[in-house]
Amino acid sequence: MIEIRQLDITYGEGETANHVVRGIDLSIGEGESVGIVGESGCGKSTVLRSLVGLERGWRGSIQIGGRDMPQVRRIADLRLAQMVFQDPFGSLHPRHRIGTALSEAARCMGLRADPDRIAAALEEVGLPAGFADRFPHELSGGQRQRVAIARALIVEPPVILLDEPTSALDVSVQAEILNLLSDRREERGLTYLFVTHDLSVVSHMCDRILVMEKGVFSEELTADDIGAARATTPYAQHLIDASLLGHDTNP
């Protein structure tokens, strides 16, 4: 579903140039759920943003669903992948009602945007249809993140990219959102690419986990590897040990 070859991204030029992503390859099959973990500044979000076309000036090749992605995306390219952002308070327009947010997405993509469709989209993410005429500030963080997911789904993309979708949420709300994401993936056969720093979230959500360090993938792990705290590179091992702190004290 996603094929990345030799993706390379550099910001700036000359001495101050910042080589953020250094020639990575990534191949994700249809219906797969893959995670990228790494620390801030490792380049994981940049990979995601160039995949959807928010980042320009990358080199290499990106294919989604067999189509070559140009630097500047057309509607047909955009329809293949949508993104859910980290901050539920920043990803919805403060002056657009929820219904507007959803119908805008559908209309701009040339899809039907009648009230029935909006209601169905809201119900699909577990929100009552009446939410359509609320403003984002009237919703809790978890509810907003549900709206953001509905907005991504309404375009009916085969691929959804998730940039730390639950790191701004409470644990119990996170559980609900992660369950929602798993259900929708099962139902629609979606392909997920997760970017997060939280190893327990990716190991729950993803089959394969790539550890990113200084612009390259340094190791590929499975969820079982993380559960068993088993890695080959010292960096990945350190990352696992640090994030499993306290997990041995299960009730």
Partner: peptide, 25 residues
């Protein structure tokens, strides 16, 4: 902002972004 990024992802045209998303703010 993320909401403008999201609007770019669903293909909102530059003029639409300008008048319907950025100007009201």
């Amino acid at each position: 902002t993320d909401y403008v990024a999201a609007a770019r992802l669903y293909g909102a045209s530059p003029l639409r972004l300008l008048f319907f998303y950025v100007t009201p703010m």
